[in-house]
Each structure stands twice: as structure tokens, then as C-alpha cells.
Computed example of a mutant assay.
Amino acid sequence: MTKLIRNLLAATTALTTLIGFAPAQAAPPGATKNIVLVHGAFVDGSGWKAIAEILRKRGYNVSIVQPPETSLEDDVAATNRVLDGLDGPAVLVGHSYGGVIITVAGNHPQVKNLVYVAALQPDAGESAGQLLGSKPAATNYIVPSKDGFLTIQREHFQDAFAADLPKAEADFIGASQVATSGKALSTPVTSPAWKVKPSFAIVATQDRAINPDLERSMYTRSHAVTTEIAASHAVYISQPAAVAKVIEQAAAAAVTH
């Protein structure tokens, strides 16, 4: 019986390793272990899948927020709900409009550091729409619905959002867009968390949805530790290892603040 149990355990271990569910290694000693990922406009949390897998294998506890994109208030509430459920401090990560969300939700006491991934980083009194209008992007194929929700025209989605993804993948993301409320993009921020908490940032140098020069100017203003990656707006999908590396830098730095 003992031999049978040993054989079963060995087979289970081999199968677990084969299908990618091997036990994760421990996170680096002293690093903030909770990572919370917030997506931006037009997409959902599934785009974080590769980054979440990388971070979990390295011992981090990864949570993915699903903002409803109905208003900035609702999106911040969804993020705070996840932060409230954590057992300790966290690094809060936002992509695109998700940067506006984390700029507000980052005031949560659990948040230690912020990471902006090709993201908007508004100052007090600024909205997403105001920032986007200040330095126009290379493409603008956003169309409104009758009730004030926005999407990117599907035939232009790859060019505008995901030029470095395979066409089939970009087409699927474009077809499964989450319509984003115009209200969410027009609501100004009042108390930016980056003014009191350190931030890290990624400039996507081939971004056609947010002007890379706008990304640089926002991150310079906030004194963010900035990394440039040659990628489209979908950098978190096309280059997950490079983005995960920056998130881990933020997690390691968070313990010193």
C-alpha cells in the first residue's frame, strides 16, 4: 500500500509539472507579495493572463480587478473591493485608463507602490479625456453608442490597440470589447495617489492609442521610475515578461517605503 501511495504521488507530481501547475517558488524575501492588476478601457482582465502566470510562478499572490467601465466611481469601487480582501500590502498596477483608476484607488491604505503600464497618470483636476486630448494619439477610431458608451471600430482595432499581436488575437479582443462609459473618461481626479506613493511606469514606444510623448511627460512629472519597451498599447499582452519584470521591481521597492 505504501508503495502504491508513493507511485500515485510521483505520478501526480509529474502530471502537475507537465500541465503547468507546479508549486510556485517563494517570492523574493521581503518583497510585497500581493499584486493587483487593473485593466483599462475596451478590454477585460483576461489580457493579464500571461503576466499573472509569470508572477504566480514566482510566488506572488495575484488578483485581477474587473472594473465595469461604467464610471470612474464604479471602477474605483471595484478596485477597492479587491484591496479590502487582501491580507497585507499590495502593488497596484494599471494599464491605459486603468492608470486613472489606480491613481484614485491607490490612496487605499493597502497600496504601497503604483505601476503604470502605458497608462494615463492624471494630476488633480485632470480627466482621461483631457489628457488624451492634450497630445493626440496616432489613431482615433473610437465611436460612441446612442447611450454614451465608447468602443474602438473593430476593423481598426489592431492598428489602434494591438499592432504587435497576431491578427487573429487582435481581432478576437476587438470583437469582445467592453464598452466604456464616456462619463468614466471625463471625470476628473481629485487626490492623485502618486503624489504620496512611489510609482513605476512603462512607456510603450510604439503606442498608437496613447501618445508615447504623453506617457513620458506624465511619468516625468510624477518622478516615476520609467522603463521604455518597444511595443504597442497592448504591451502587457505582447511582452508579458518585460512588464512582469517592472512589476517585480515595484514589489521589491515597496518594502522600503
Rank of each mutant, 00 (worst) to 15 (best):
T256A: 14
A209R: 09
K183T: 08
I247Q: 01
V189C: 06
K183M: 08
L86Y: 05
P68I: 13
Y116D: 02
N211K: 02
E126P: 10
G129Q: 04
S222Q: 11
G45I: 07
I173N: 13
F21W: 05
Y116F: 14
A90Q: 02
A231V: 00
S191Y: 15
A119T: 00
I102E: 00
T227S: 09
S176M: 14
F172W: 10
A253D: 13
Q177D: 05
A77P: 03
S63P: 10
Q153D: 01
D213A: 15
V76D: 01
T70S: 09
H223E: 14
A41C: 07
I142P: 05
T226A: 07
H108G: 05
V38N: 02
K197P: 14
A118I: 07
D207N: 14
M1I: 06
A26N: 07
S217P: 10
Q130F: 11
V111K: 05
I202Y: 02
V76P: 06
L8F: 07
G133D: 05
K245G: 02
V117C: 14
A162C: 09
Y116R: 12
E215L: 15
T79D: 08
T17K: 06
G40L: 10
A162R: 06
N140E: 13
Q66A: 13
R154C: 06
A77V: 04
M1P: 11
I173M: 13
P166H: 13
T220C: 11
A138C: 12
D213M: 15
A201F: 03
E155D: 10
A160L: 02
A138E: 15
P198S: 10
T13F: 08
T12Q: 11
S199T: 11
E73T: 07
A230T: 15
F149E: 03
F42N: 04
R208N: 08
S176P: 09
A11F: 02
F200S: 03
S46K: 05
A160H: 03
G148N: 10
A231S: 06
Q158H: 12
A253Q: 11
A179Q: 01
T17L: 12
H95R: 10
F200I: 13
L120Q: 07
Q158N: 11
L4C: 02
T139F: 09
A22W: 12
A78S: 10
A52I: 14
A90H: 02
D75C: 01
A14L: 15
N107L: 03
P23V: 12
K57N: 06
